Simulated scan of single mutants.
Amino acid sequence: MNHTIAIQGFEGSFHQIAAQHYFGPALTLAPCATFTEVVRQVTCGEAHRGVMAIENSIAGSILPNYNLLQQNELQISGEVYLTIGQHLMALPGQSLADIREVHSHPMALLQCADFLSQYPHLRLVETEDTALSAKRIRDNQLAGVAAVAGRLAADLFEMDILAADIQSAKENYTRFLVVERPEDAQSPASPNKASLYFHTVNTPGSLVKVLSCIADHNINLSKLQSIPHPGRIWEYFILADLEFDRPEQFQAALHAVEQVAEGLRVLGVYQKGITY
């Protein structure tokens, strides 16, 4: 079986760190420029599993990735929460006063907006990956250009950190999902979390009925996210993350939800992730 793990990003990225925490340090990675490519590789069997960010505690949900989950036959088999430290780094021997441009993924730039706004002369350049930005600066010896990336990227590409932990909120976390094809999935020993999609008729109280089914079974609703329903203007899918104590507790709630929701689909039943 192919045990390659597809990740969005490249060597030194936060996706690599998350994958290593979940699977261990010795793994074969398939770096992908986009989340769409991650999903394609897993769906086609080129990669055994994929790791994809789904939300950040500062920047919020990554809605296109929810759409990718909804539109493709993939199953969530796990998750990991990663503490994100964003650092401003450049070629050795430079100072912050030497920097004219800052390159990074738009999500990273958004997470560091407060710090970067203190230097209005800096030109912010959006790229496809944090670590790849650092690598390009190293490979091309770009003086006067800095990257926002993680400490692993600074270590790998021998960059000097000019300012550490520049994210706006010092408690900055990203949640990553582990996805795989349903035919490859194995049931976890002690599942305590599930993700599901559904939609309801556009009538008063329809969503409340679903939420009441969940509450009546003493299940914690840890996330509720609305996502536009393609082809239906102002109608939405709802994604819900449910945390429970016993699998039979979830199954009972699921049966109740089926009676009042439409288009119900369970995206995965798995163990709640660990924070690193």
Rank of each mutant, 00 (worst) to 15 (best):
R49V: 13
F35S: 14
P191S: 13
L264I: 07
D139I: 12
Y81I: 06
L177T: 05
G263N: 06
V208F: 10
V201A: 12
G268D: 06
L156E: 07
G144M: 12
Q186A: 15
V145R: 01
F23L: 12
A134V: 06
Q70V: 01
H21E: 12
L63Y: 05
A131F: 05
A113Y: 01
Q259A: 14
L132W: 05
D155N: 15
I214S: 13
K209H: 08
R151H: 13
E46R: 13
K170W: 01
I227C: 11
R265G: 04
L267Q: 07
Q259M: 08
L196P: 01
V260I: 05
F244T: 06
G150R: 03
P64D: 05
R265K: 09
N140A: 15
H103E: 09
Y66G: 11
F237R: 04
A134I: 04
R138M: 14
V51T: 03
L196C: 14
E158W: 03
A19Q: 03
T83V: 10
S61E: 08
N140Q: 15
D216C: 12
A18D: 11
L63G: 07
S226A: 14
A256R: 00
I99V: 09
E73T: 04
F244I: 07
V51H: 04
H3L: 14
T200S: 09
A131S: 08
Q41Y: 10
V80Q: 03
E262Y: 00
I214D: 11
Q249C: 06
G45I: 07
A53F: 04
R246M: 09
Q186M: 13
M89V: 06
V266D: 04
V179R: 01
H15M: 07
V208N: 10
P64M: 08
A215Q: 11
E11I: 10
D139V: 12
L142S: 14
I5W: 02
E79L: 03
G144I: 06
S226P: 02
L27Q: 03
G50M: 07
E248N: 10
G263P: 00
A143L: 12
L88P: 02
Q271F: 00
K272V: 02
G78T: 01
Q75Y: 00
V42A: 14
A30K: 04
L242S: 08
L109N: 03
H199P: 02
S222K: 02
D165K: 08
I214K: 04
A253W: 01
P230C: 07
A147E: 13
F237L: 15
D98N: 08
E235H: 12
A153N: 10
T34S: 10
V179H: 02
R181F: 08
V257C: 14
A90M: 09
S61L: 13
M52H: 01
